[in-house]
Design a protein around this nucleic acid. Structure first.
Lengths: 126, 126
DNA sequence: TAAACATATGAACAATTATTCATATGAGAG
DNA sequence: CTCTCATATGAATAATTGTTCATATGTTTA
């Protein structure tokens, strides 16, 4: 018996008495709940945006590709800190990079990132 | 002399030699950088979405308002944990609530939240 | 008013995480 | 090959944060 089935069983038999008004809805939602992994990935994505250094980096890169030393200069952050954060962003596939001589040129890896950022900015200015 | 002006001064005089290719662009971006507070607020917003319990709660509420015990049942989380997280979400104005008898009915506070969530879900399924 | 239920909250603990410092790697210039 | 610049990385530290447990608050019902 899967976890989901167990959960439904509980829904049928053990729903608290708090109202009952929502029992049906809850049952329905439960049937269509994204799986654990999906929620995990989603929260990991937002976690990446949930740090002001990283958000600054992403904002900068959203204006165009640039190398690490540009970012260091633009923001008020150590080279080491920027590099560490870029590694995380790269792992999360939010940015990509290429080497060019001594420099490493970073850029936003796809348009979704930019859209999410804009949504966020729109939201905080209401 | 403001911080921003100092920054620009540095840009003119101390830009690393790494390329120079981006100096002009960096200068331009620097002039239009959102302020520290804006970045802070933005990252705080995403931080709220950067936890799988909270994301689950928000997803549930995106399907319709419900009381705490519904959420507890739907997700696999303690009542206490849910309550703590709801407080944070409320503080961040991502959810609102009203009392109805013994229950507290929570709901998403505005459509932006839903949009950002959807964007995120779209992104992770590429 | 007492009992039962729904929710909230404070304190403690464990886990995660961002930054710093020191140093390593990589790449071009001389 | 050596020096210098650009970037990366490991270890240590400090701070933040999510959950749990115990208990408090608030609301209805008997």
């Amino acid at each position: 018996m899967s976890n989901r089935e167990v959960k439904q069983e509980e829904l049928k038999t053990e729903h608290s008495e708090c109202g009952g008004k929502y029992v049906e809805m809850v049952k329905k939602i439960n049937d269509n709940m994204p799986c654990e992994e999906e929620f995990y990935d989603l929260s990991e994505l937002f976690k990446m945006l949930g740090d002001s250094t990283r958000v600054k980096i992403l904002y900068a890169l959203s204006q165009g590709e640039m190398c690490v030393c540009d970012i260091v200069e633009l923001l008020d952050v150590t080279q080491s800190a920027v590099s560490h954060q870029l590694r995380l962003l790269k792992q999360a596939r939010l940015v990509k990079y290429r080497r060019s001589g001594k420099s490493a040129i970073y850029s936003i890896s796809d348009d979704h990132v930019y859209t999410i950022l804009s949504m966020g900015m729109e939201h905080i200015s209401e």
